[in-house]
């Protein structure tokens, strides 16, 4: 390499240096700190008690009929988080795919307007969005007012799992629609014509051509909704009346109570599980979407 070229390359190295150091100090090292806190006690001696506590701690769950049942506290919270997140993600996909498809098929000008309309709620803080639903779904709220007026209500929604799911779906809906839309909008329409020429009806074009081609968008939509819904706090506090503690609420609760080591342990377990989930998604994608057939 000529000296001049070498000099140019070292200049580029230098321009990357601040970010490299920053990422090491404030991205990599903090993640190591989660593991460090998770496996140490208050005096920073090694212990697995926090991890064990996550799997073994028990408490008494009061059921609706007043009876109590002993449950594994944090395992229950964890599976509840997974369940609500998976349901919310599925609802987002079922509601979002059709609208993404309609958007991709609309005129260019309409497409732009619709994208902006989908994005506008994202510009409101999620605390405010969640709070708005709280006032709508309250026992004396607008929703109950409306359905009472047509003689159906009132129904108790706030404080149920349904309310938490509505909140999650509303907060993360755009993250599902936008990636799917961006793939569908770029889809080569000649492929659809070809499929039709070869004898596909509309449903089989959708099932055998459009949907498989849009899978990368579907998968990034699923991850972009699943990850924040699994780890959210606040939504369940506001819409679930604090009855449906989620894993994010558990971390926040331990942080507020200044149990930093246990908070770190829960965060560590959440991180490991999410990494495993992502690896599965990646494996399935590479095999199913890019691997052929």
């Amino acid at each position: 390499m000529k000296p001049a070229v070498k000099k140019v390359h070292s200049t580029y190295r230098i321009s990357l240096a601040p970010y490299s150091v920053w990422s090491l100090l404030f991205v990599i090292v903090p993640l190591i700190f989660i593991a460090y806190y998770a496996f140490t006690d208050n005096n920073f001696n090694f212990t697995t008690e926090h991890i064990t506590r996550f799997f073994t701690a028990t408490s008494n769950l009061v059921k609706d009929d007043g009876s109590t049942q002993e449950v594994r506290t944090y395992l229950l919270i964890f599976f509840r988080s997974m369940k609500l997140a998976v349901i919310s993600t599925a609802v987002c996909l079922l509601m979002g795919y059709p609208i993404a498809y309609i958007m991709a098929r609309a005129k260019e000008k309409t497409q732009k307007t619709m994208v902006t309309l989908i994005m506008i709620p994202m510009w409101m803080n999620f605390l405010i969005r969640t709070y708005a639903w709280m006032t709508i779904l309250q026992d004396t709220g607008i929703f109950n007012g409306l359905i009472s007026a047509i003689g159906l209500g009132p129904v108790r929604i706030i404080g149920t799992e349904a309310a938490v799911i509505i909140g999650m779906v509303y907060d993360y809906f755009p993250y599902m629609v936008l990636p799917i839309y961006s793939i569908l909008a770029k889809l080569d329409t000649r492929l659809l014509e070809a499929a039709r020429d070869l004898g596909c009806n509309s449903i089989s074009v959708l099932r055998r051509v459009i949907f498989p081609l849009s899978l990368p968008g579907v998968i990034s939509g699923i991850t972009m909704v699943l990850i924040p819904s699994v780890s959210t706090f606040y939504i369940s506090q506001k819409l679930g009346n604090g009855k449906f503690f989620l894993i994010g609420d558990a971390i926040e609760g331990q942080y507020v109570a200044n149990n930093l080591h246990f908070a770190a342990a829960i965060a560590f377990i959440l991180m490991v599980i999410l990494l495993a989930l992502m690896a599965i998604v990646k494996y399935v994608t590479s095999k199913y979407v890019y691997g052929g057939d």
Binding site: S23, P30, I34, Y37, S231, A264, M271, M278
Partner: peptide, 24 residues
């Protein structure tokens, strides 16, 4: 390595990023 490191704050849940920085 740089691509992976750049991805981490975007894909990690906010609560993990927040907790990890706070602990440090």
């Amino acid at each position: 390595v740089m691509n992976t490191v750049t991805d981490i704050p975007m894909t990690n849940p906010d609560i993990i990023t927040g907790i990890s920085l706070m602990l440090m």
